[in-house]
């Protein structure tokens, strides 16, 4: 039994002004953590792999995707349920030294941005043997 998808309205980025005008939207995110590290998945429909920017500066992780406007050339809107704009989201990664920043990896598939922050070797959990007396 699968659950039915609901339509959620796209949310605009608020609280920080952009240099350039136009609307930015907040992509929905899943953040998963396991012993290997952090895995983020963000819905960015209409963004191709060439127009994504992922940056980790200290504890600030910033993710941005630009939609391709060429797809709208020659089209005149007749009926609209959603607006189109670039995507942007920022996270604070507390204690980001736990992750190996040289190994941060991003890839975009079918409009979903997947970012992995692998745990640095030093921060990986290890089993501590308990010596019996």
């Amino acid at each position: 039994m699968t659950q039915e998808l609901e339509r959620k309205d796209k949310q605009e980025v608020e609280g920080q002004e952009q240099i350039s005008p136009g609307r930015y939207f907040v992509p929905a995110v899943d953040i998963w953590e396991d012993e290997d590290g952090l895995l983020l998945r963000l819905d960015m429909p209409g963004v191709d792999p060439e127009h994504v920017a992922v940056e980790l500066n200290d504890d600030a992780l910033s993710l941005e995707g630009q939609v391709t406007l060429a797809d709208y050339e020659g089209l005149s809107p007749a009926y609209t349920e959603y607006n189109v704009g670039h995507f942007q989201r920022r996270f604070t990664v507390p204690n980001s030294g736990r992750f190996d920043r040289d190994q941060v990896h991003a890839r975009l598939t079918n409009g979903v941005l997947e970012v992995t922050l692998p745990r640095s070797e030093a921060a990986k959990p290890r089993r501590i043997a308990v010596a019996s007396a």
Binding site: L5, R7, P45, G74, P77, Y82, V112
Partner: peptide, 23 residues
């Protein structure tokens, strides 16, 4: 509230329907 959100456009040749279906 039906998924997926849809936009409908006209172009020279007819109708273009576009939907956001990430993933």
């Amino acid at each position: 509230a039906v998924f997926p959100p849809i936009n409908v456009f006209n172009d020279r040749d007819g109708v273009v329907i576009r939907a956001e279906v990430p993933g």
